[in-house]
Design a protein around this nucleic acid. Structure first.
Length: 427
RNA sequence: GGAUGGGUGGCCGAGUGGUCGAAGGCGGCAGUCUUGAAAACUGCUGUACUCGUAAGGGUACCCUGGGUUCGAAUCCCAGCCCAUCCGCCA
């Protein structure tokens, strides 16, 4: 959420930003309503002040008659205050709704464009896409041959989009998790495993909208809980309502969680197999920083993602995400797209990680502040998130890029210590 | 699931319907003393919003939401959360 005062004082810039991001938001109405709301707020405060004064005078009243007169005056003032207050509260609610619809500001260097076609490639990985002297299979066929994934079983139990990992795929998931966590711990992250459910307010705070018609979130009936779509939600919520000392920042946390997504309306070839599923495991990076640390932290996160995929020997490119493709909370976002030989005709890049600097957009909603020693008041922290490894999509890249002519899969060097083998062979 | 006890400032912890933004302690900051430090002593020390160029006013906030009252941290109702014990259980 952007700051109200900021929106009012920079309405033109905010409107331009909405246009760049392809977001419809009635900024003018917000500005008008906010002026009115302020006026009402002042009235409420003045009425309260008068009522307080009257109440204080009651003890000093010299006789019963005067006391009664004071009481009556107090009653009238409080009633009037109630009236103005409820008018104010209604406006406040509407403004908050408008405000929630306004996306974060955008980094001046973020490419301007309405969708991912405007994303700008900014770097590529150490490894070039592999040349096969045979026709490579996609991960669904590979998994079938090697008995690694049971999609039918998943569908039987929970419907399309669910799956059982099987045999060496299970070890691969654990190996990938270990590989990522070990690297991040080495980089000073505090590892956590997080709840897989979170309160609706926490989802809202991080910019997710559960329980709407277009929601991507599973909710638990008769409760205020939702299955999380990413550990970003729970780790961000970890400090909700807290004020931390500036010296404690930046705080780097990495978490492993399950991720649940309804993926309403998504189907087709591009989401075959593991690419778009309702549940997967993900190792997530998260940081709470001082405002002047967040840009460097975003580069750091991007760097780590590259290191993780270079370490796995997977070819990739990194794109600077266009304004229209940023999503609400992100100020700037880098996506890492891995080469998937089985995707499309002859291979395509597919998004495997995403790292965003959300500046104070999430922190404002979550009310996460920091205090500098010796300074009055508090400020909002900046939050950043980045995928270290989304296991399901990483599996696609690992399986497809490392397939051999004989149908086996070479286990990437970096995973061998955790896998206990260097080849996934035919059963 | 059952029973009980709780939710008060950065933390601990008191609080009789008005003088309570809230005792006291701890912590923090500044000062006195000291060669320096510690100790001791003295003073200061919440947040947000709002009015004001400023100095400085004002309003709100004692888990949340309602209610009673001229007036609620305090009384009433509902809810949420936490802790402990019992039961069940990985």
């Amino acid at each position: 959420m952007l700051d109200r005062k900021y929106i009012v004082e920079n309405a033109a810039a905010v409107k331009q930003n909405c246009a760049n991001r392809g977001v419809e938001a009635d900024v003018d109405r917000l500005v008008a309503l906010e002026a009115k709301r302020r006026d009402l707020l002042n009235q409420v405060q003045e009425l309260n002040r008068q009522a307080n004064e009257v109440s204080k005078g009651i003890g000093k009243a010299k006789d019963a008659e005067e006391r009664e007169a004071h009481k009556e005056a107090g009653r009238t003032l409080r009633e009037e205050k109630e009236r103005v207050q409820s008018e104010h509260d209604e406006l406040d609610k509407e403004i908050t709704t408008l405000q929630s619809g306004i996306p974060n500001l955008s980094h001046p260097d973020a490419p301007i464009g309405e969708d991912d076609k405007s994303n700008l490639e900014i770097r590529t990985g150490q490894h070039a896409p592999p040349e096969f002297d045979f026709t490579p299979l996609d991960h669904v066929d590979l998994a079938e041959k090697l008995d690694l994934i049971d999609f039918e079983g998943g569908a039987r139990v929970a419907g399309a989009g669910f799956y059982f990992l099987k045999n060496d795929a299970v070890l691969l998931e654990l190996a990938l998790t270990q590989y990522a966590l070990q690297m991040l711990i080495g980089e000073g992250f505090t590892p956590v495993t997080t709840p897989d459910l979170a309160y609706t307010e926490i989802l809202h705070g991080t910019g997710y909208i559960p329980r709407g018609p277009e929601t991507q979130i599973y909710s638990i009936e008769n409760s205020n809980l939702n299955l999380v779509a990413t550990a970003e939600i729970t780790i961000g919520g970890l400090l909700a309502g807290q004020t931390v000392d500036a010296e404690e920042l930046p705080l780097k946390i990495c978490g492993s969680s399950h991720c649940f997504r309804t993926e309403a309306g998504a189907a087709g070839r591009a989401s075959r197999g593991l690419y778009r599923v309702h549940q997967f495991t993900k190792v997530e990076m998260f940081a709470f920083t001082l405002p002047d640390q967040s840009e460097a932290m975003l580069d750091h996160f991007c760097e780590l993602e590259c290191r993780i995929f270079d370490g796995l020997g997977i070819p990739y490119r990194v794109v600077d995400t266009a304004t229209g493709d940023l999503g609400g909370p992100a100020y700037r976002k880098f996506d890492l797209e891995a080469w998937m030989p089985g995707r499309g005709d002859g291979g395509e890049y597919g998004e495997v990680t995403s790292t965003s600097n959300c500046t104070d957009f999430q922190a404002r909603r979550l009310n996460i502040r920091f205090r500098r020693k010796g300074e009055k008041g508090t400020q909002f922290v900046h939050t950043l998130n980045g995928t270290a490894l989304a296991i399901s999509r990483a599996l696609i890249a690992v399986l497809e890029n490392n397939q051999q002519a004989d149908g086996s899969i070479n286990v990437p060097e970096a995973l061998r210590p955790w896998m206990g083998k260097d080849k996934i062979g035919l059963p």
